[in-house]
């Protein structure tokens, strides 16, 4: 065996080992995160807090050892759902326009635009929210409904969040609509459909599982978004009682409080439990969405 081939075999082996190591790191990271969050927050259970109370009580008084996460969970759910409700029709219409109607050159311009939108740091969206959306809500939208508010509300958070998830959902939607074979459009048109009938009866039907999972991934994304929402959502601990009420989503709770008041017993465990709720929810959402995408790709 020549020296050269020995060297090549050696390199090859080394490459494989390094790659497996890197891969292992990537695979085990979520497991390690889950394990550490669980270990830390399990102290809560050991000290007489039932899972039911933690999830469904709204009494948040850390100094008295009461950790009811309900206000944060409800805030998170409401702000997420609202943001997706705002983002969904916009994403939907833009994706349909770009894949079905738009001129080639326009599509070419739009791709970098969505990429830029997706790449803007979260904190920039937060600042923009304070500068533009907060006054918009306090001076225009809320007075329109006869309500007075500071502008730091559930709605404000949802608007900022929806703008952040639009490019993310849009990119997936465009990809999914582009996987629908062009022959289906041709077939539909040849049967005398209008363009819109083809889109409605054929393309959207074919892409349905993918569309659902795109919004699933969008929800997971919105649920975990922290800084921008924290900056505009108000952060008052109560269950929001309307669009113009302040809200306090889970990620904001953790970001605002970790590192502070750590002398309070079990406080850090409670925050870890909040992180665990986020982790598990997002994990499940991603998992389900991926499964749907996988099935779709296999059936195409």
């Amino acid at each position: 065996m020549t020296a050269l081939s020995l060297k090549r075999i050696y390199q090859d082996k080394l490459n494989t080992v390094v790659m497996i190591m890197a891969l292992t790191l990537v695979i085990t990271t979520p497991l390690i995160i889950f394990a550490s969050l669980y270990t830390k927050s399990s102290m809560l259970f050991a000290s007489d807090h039932s899972l039911w109370d933690l999830l469904f009580s709204s009494a948040w008084e850390p100094t008295k050892g009461k950790f009811g996460f309900l206000p944060f969970i409800i805030s998170s759910i409401e702000i997420t759902i609202l943001s997706v409700i705002i983002a969904a029709p916009i994403c939907f219409l833009v994706a349909i326009h770009l894949t079905q109607y738009a001129k080639h050159w326009f599509v070419k311009i739009m791709y970098p635009v969505t990429d830029i939108l997706a790449g803007i740091p979260s904190v920039v969206y937060g600042v923009w929210g304070i500068l533009v959306v907060v006054p918009l809500v306090s001076d225009v939208i809320a007075p329109f409904f006869g309500i007075q508010t500071t502008g730091y509300t559930l709605l404000t958070g949802a608007i900022v969040l929806s703008i952040m998830i639009i490019p993310f959902i849009l990119n997936i939607l465009i990809e999914i609509l582009n996987t629908v074979p062009f022959e289906l459009t041709e077939a539909g048109l040849s049967l005398g459909s209008t363009r819109w009938q083809v889109i409605k009866h054929i393309i959207l039907k074919k892409a349905k599982p993918g569309i659902i999972s795109a919004f699933g991934l969008g929800i997971a994304r919105a649920f975990g978004e922290t800084i921008a929402v924290l900056m505009v959502a108000g952060n008052v601990i109560k269950i929001p009682d309307g669009l113009f009420s302040a809200s306090y989503p889970l990620p904001a709770l953790i970001a605002n409080n970790y590192g502070e008041m750590m002398s309070i017993p079990l406080y850090d465990s409670a925050l870890m439990f909040g992180a665990l709720i986020l982790f598990v929810t997002i994990f499940l959402f991603n998992l389900v969405s991926r499964i749907v995408i996988y099935r779709l790709e296999r059936s195409l």
């Binding site: 022959e183 289906l184 041709e186 077939a187 539909g188 009866h201 054929i202």
Partner: peptide, 8 residues
């Protein structure tokens, strides 16, 4: 068409 394109 060349390949059948059954509607979904």
């Amino acid at each position: 068409s060349q390949r059948p394109a059954p509607l979904p």
